[in-house]
Design a protein around this nucleic acid. Structure first.
Lengths: 189, 189
DNA sequence: TTGCGCGGAGAACGATCGTTCTCTACTGTA
DNA sequence: TACAGTAGAGAACGATCGTTCTCCGCGCAA
């Protein structure tokens, strides 16, 4: 038998892929069982309900996102460059063939009205991203008001890329971010 | 009996409110029937399927959105101001108690993977908005590259406001738009 | 070898959904 | 009054979903 940790990971990874590709409600637990290779009984011993599995998947997505962001930031030497790597990271993501928008935004649109657990997980992720941007903005010595503006650019790029089906939004958002950074630098001195 | 036009309007209006408040998949046709006061048989004589009703609702939302945007723009005298009224319009919308994000983004996240008709309607609306912004940018004599940047700000403000539950994003996006407009004017001379 | 406990496969259950069908009541005409 | 046509109310149908239950087979102690 597979040990509990591996089984958990298999279920979350399979559910993540299916939920992201088809939407949460369009994927039945049977499909998760088949994809994960873990029996339904086992799944329900690991997660009390589908709702709990959804939240676990969102937490897993948060880690993936954070790691991707941190990995992209490593290539930068200055705080300003580190901010711009956010949009380079988005650009690479948008070009992945199975890109289908931000899983958190999608989950919120689909379940936000009915599941407060989902709303909480999504809100926590977005707030963490806001704080990440705020740290970078502070490191760059830019005014704090710049942070939510950059975060809004990143959010808008994600929905625009998802709906349009092209990765152009990353480039546009990056250009806007540069303009905002330049303007902030000009004001500062 | 209600005439066909009124029945159609009643169904679309009822479905729009329910879909927006609870999500499309969470609302059954029975609930639409009850809210619209139109029998199921009649609904299915007006719309071949739920999918067709969803698309009709999205078209109705497009008109509402266009009218709201045009109404806000009327108050402006210059092209630059007309661009900024977009964010004033968003601000007012975000403050409505039943605001729950952009219906098109929500519908795309929920059904975009399974219904190409929904994807098409959503994509058409977003493209129309992009073109609207592009016209205003041209009227303002700003470089065309500014248009997608402003549109991305508007999209990002909508998702940020929906998830955070506060209307602050409209103010932040407006400030960013002003900076971008100023920078474009500075370059132009 | 025998008995036991546990896990896998998937059938079963109750609820709900989109869609269709049945039955009844009403309208207008001769 | 008798009749044809239509629309409303909601029951019915088949499918699907989340969740639970049953049955079977395998590994291990004595």
């Amino acid at each position: 038998m597979i040990d509990e940790k591996t089984a958990r990971e298999n279920v979350i990874r399979a559910a993540d892929e299916l939920f992201y590709a088809h939407g949460v409600q369009a994927v039945g637990m049977d499909a998760v069982r088949t994809a994960a290779g873990v029996s339904l009984k086992r799944i329900y011993s690991l997660f009390a309900s589908k709702d709990e599995l959804i939240v676990a998947v969102l937490h897993h997505r948060t880690e993936t996102w954070d790691n991707g962001l941190a990995g992209a930031a490593e290539r930068a030497t200055t705080a300003r460059e580190r901010i711009l790597t956010i949009f380079d990271f988005l650009d690479g993501w948008f070009r992945e063939p199975d890109f289908r928008g931000c899983a958190f935004i999608n989950a919120h649109g689909e379940l936000g009205a009915s599941s407060s657990a989902v709303t909480g997980a999504v809100r926590a992720q977005k707030q963490a991203f806001q704080e990440y941007v705020a740290r970078l903005v502070a490191d760059a010595g830019a005014p704090p008001a710049l942070a939510p503006q950059l975060a809004i650019l990143a959010e808008g790029a994600q929905t625009t890329a998802a709906i349009s089906g092209t990765p152009d939004a990353a480039r546009h958002a990056r250009a806007a971010a540069e303009t905002l950074l330049d303007a902030a630098a000009r004001v500062r001195g």
